[in-house]
Design a protein around this nucleic acid. Sequence first.
DNA 1: TGAACTCGGAGTATTTTACTCGGAATTTGA
DNA 2: TCAAATTCCGAGTAAAATACTCCGAGTTCA
Lengths: 136, 136
Amino acid sequence: MRVTRKSDYGLRALCTLARHYNREPVSIGQLSAEHKIPEPFLEKIMQELREHGLVEATHGRGGGYLLKKRPSQISLREIVQALDGPIALVTCLDPSLKCAIEDGCPTSPIWEIVNHQLEEYLASLTLSDVMKLQGE
Amino acid sequence: MRVTRKSDYGLRALCTLARHYNREPVSIGQLSAEHKIPEPFLEKIMQELREHGLVEATHGRGGGYLLKKRPSQISLREIVQALDGPIALVTCLDPSLKCAIEDGCPTSPIWEIVNHQLEEYLASLTLSDVMKLQGE
DNA sequence: TGAACTCGGAGTATTTTACTCGGAATTTGA
DNA sequence: TCAAATTCCGAGTAAAATACTCCGAGTTCA
Ligand code: FES
Ligand code: FES
């Protein structure tokens, strides 16, 4: 029942990018120092975020990353899905896998409901919510 | 973001025990056959459920397991906590571990909220809810 | 007394997560 | 124009968590 470290690291980095929204890009070096994230690992994370359209990168000296959308347009759900893959509380809910029992499985309906609730809840929270909470 | 197989297996087994509430105990053999769970693994699972006071066992021939409380008194949260340990969406929320940043960590407030919501939601669902959904 | 059970502890195997490495490509400023 | 600062990409390795096994011992009951 855990979000991977990738998602937590990713979210922390995105917070910094939210502060820099509409300003100069932020490099891996800066991000990893601020949040104590191993550099090469964060590099991979930012790459995935870019592939999923959440950030964009500028190459070369002075380059780095910036948010591609407004902080209020980026939900926790998107972030977690980008880094951890589909939200599936049990393996049977992961579209890329299949389950042992299928029909007549007593637990599948309840997990579907819980999963759906969780997904909707994460969709309702955005980077700007995270920023707001931080200030308190 | 996954409940372990242990919890899913455990929940399936508990469903059968719910049907047998106030009747004869059900053995590991029966349970594992019905739900296609490896016998020795299920044995461990039932042991943990017993240690957490959710089921009770009777030894010897004709023995097996029975629920120790009414199905409506057993929440998903208890089950998951018994088998997967504390519900902690990120490692920082697990009381047995500590975190790298602590003060000023931008993500900790939001994860606490999400974690709490999830926990409450699981607490609100019981074995009898699972049974009801199954009938549909 | 022996078959059908659970108990308990100590394992092993498999999968997932976390993280590293090195070389190529891109941009900018001196 | 070249060297430094940066991302990009693919292929790894290391560590941790999960999934599962094994076996000998204790219980109960017919
Ligand atoms: S085994 Fe797949 S839904 Fe239960
Ligand atoms: S690192 Fe522990 S709360 Fe963020």
